Computed example of a mutant assay.
Amino acid sequence: MRAIVRRGPALLLADVPEAVPGPGQVVAKTLACGICGSDLHAVHHLEHGVEMGLRSGAADTIDASSDLVLGHEFCAEILDHGPGTAKNLKAGTRVVSTPFAFSELGPELIGFSTRYRGAFAERLVLTEALLLPVPNGLKSEAAALTEPLSVGTHAVAAANPGPRSVALVVGCGPIGLAVIVALKRRGIGPIIAADFSPARRARAERLGADIVVDPAATSPHASWSSLDVPATLAEFGLAQLSGRTLRDAVIFECVGVPGMLQNLIENAPPTAHVVVVGACQEDDRILPVIAINKQLRFTFVFAYTPAEFAETLQALGEGEIDADTFLTGEVALADTPAVFTRLETPGDDVKIVVQPWR
């Protein structure tokens, strides 16, 4: 069958062995698979990603010298069942799944495993117990958004904002927009969204951001005082002495580049909760004493829970999320390497979906 293979620091269209389900697994036809920033990073920096995983305590599931089929944001159609399956979902059912398979090493991430190929392929093997049927006729490209949107669901759950929280989302790529959606679904506002791209700012506004900022022209932190959030230690002290009722700031860092944490430490209002969603994979430096003086709180988040994944799928299926705002392109398998090359230069795209059946 055909697949997009990462071979060395390059992607190519190649024939790979057929997907064969083992016990408790199904084989499925890939209908749609989104391109993630982690996929882009893996093409040229897989070895570094493997090192970061091992240093984090993850299992050694990737042989960087072997061919790798990426793709973990997928919607697929069940073709057949392996031995020992319950067959609760019949062949022909469209499904999504948290992108995990299980081996003697424990859970392995589909698309970032040498043993379990990802969804940039015509067919893939999935774990039956993790499958969720696509609800309410939701189109496959929108269903494939379940995985990245669940990251936003999890980030907001970890932030646990209250009814008087004011949110700032820094970076309006796929994850930043997913955070905005999750905040709106919880009724949190106002929401400030900051991005250099006019197209992404427009999408943030369409999804419910109340204040949209171009950081090249205006500081994302310019509105705190007007929203009853003391912007400085001096303002915070006066507000406490006067007994004013204050609002709290929750900031979502969705960029993931060196310097962002220190920038937020210097500009965030006192007592702010900073939720780090952007995955910076380079060494960085911060000056902790400023964060200490401001009593800032940092939470680093990763992925989502199965319940958050199911909740996000349900929200998509019930029309609570405008999926079309995220979808900016669809490509055939053969065109995928060229699209990866184009996406290496930041632009206005949010989520491009690969359709391996084309």
Rank of each mutant, 00 (worst) to 15 (best):
residue 3 A to R: 03
residue 7 R to M: 07
residue 8 G to E: 03
residue 9 P to L: 10
residue 12 L to P: 01
residue 12 L to G: 13
residue 13 L to S: 06
residue 13 L to Y: 04
residue 15 D to F: 03
residue 17 P to H: 11
residue 21 P to E: 06
residue 21 P to F: 07
residue 22 G to F: 05
residue 23 P to Y: 12
residue 24 G to F: 04
residue 24 G to C: 07
residue 27 V to A: 13
residue 32 A to N: 01
residue 40 L to S: 06
residue 50 V to T: 06
residue 52 M to R: 14
residue 52 M to V: 13
residue 54 L to F: 08
residue 55 R to D: 11
residue 57 G to Q: 05
residue 65 S to I: 08
residue 66 S to K: 15
residue 72 H to G: 07
residue 73 E to S: 06
residue 76 A to K: 06
residue 80 D to E: 15
residue 80 D to K: 14
residue 89 L to H: 08
residue 89 L to N: 09
residue 94 R to W: 10
residue 98 T to Q: 15
residue 98 T to K: 14
residue 104 E to L: 12
residue 104 E to V: 12
residue 104 E to T: 12
residue 105 L to F: 10
residue 106 G to A: 07
residue 107 P to S: 12
residue 110 I to V: 15
residue 111 G to Y: 04
residue 114 T to G: 08
residue 114 T to F: 10
residue 115 R to C: 04
residue 118 G to C: 07
residue 121 A to R: 04
residue 121 A to E: 04
residue 126 L to R: 05
residue 133 P to D: 08
residue 139 K to S: 11
residue 146 T to L: 05
residue 151 V to E: 05
residue 153 T to E: 14
residue 154 H to R: 11
residue 155 A to Q: 06
residue 160 N to H: 12
residue 161 P to F: 02
residue 161 P to K: 02
residue 164 R to M: 09
residue 181 V to N: 11
residue 185 R to T: 09
residue 189 G to H: 10
residue 193 A to L: 09
residue 199 A to Q: 13
residue 208 G to K: 01
residue 211 I to N: 02
residue 214 D to Y: 08
residue 219 S to P: 05
residue 220 P to N: 09
residue 220 P to I: 11
residue 224 W to T: 00
residue 226 S to H: 09
residue 228 D to V: 05
residue 233 L to P: 07
residue 234 A to C: 06
residue 237 G to T: 13
residue 248 D to I: 03
residue 249 A to W: 00
residue 250 V to D: 01
residue 253 E to R: 04
residue 254 C to F: 10
residue 255 V to T: 14
residue 264 L to F: 15
residue 268 A to L: 03
residue 268 A to W: 02
residue 279 A to H: 11
residue 279 A to I: 14
residue 284 D to K: 10
residue 291 A to G: 15
residue 292 I to V: 14
residue 295 Q to K: 12
residue 295 Q to R: 13
residue 299 T to P: 07
residue 300 F to P: 02
residue 306 P to I: 02
residue 313 L to H: 00
residue 314 Q to N: 13
residue 314 Q to L: 10
residue 317 G to T: 02
residue 319 G to W: 06
residue 320 E to H: 15
residue 321 I to D: 00
residue 322 D to G: 00
residue 323 A to D: 00
residue 326 F to S: 00
residue 327 L to W: 03
residue 329 G to W: 01
residue 332 A to L: 10
residue 335 D to L: 11
residue 337 P to V: 04
residue 337 P to C: 06
residue 341 T to V: 12
residue 342 R to V: 04
residue 348 D to G: 11
residue 349 D to A: 15
residue 350 V to P: 00
residue 352 I to V: 15
residue 353 V to P: 01
residue 354 V to F: 01
residue 357 W to H: 14
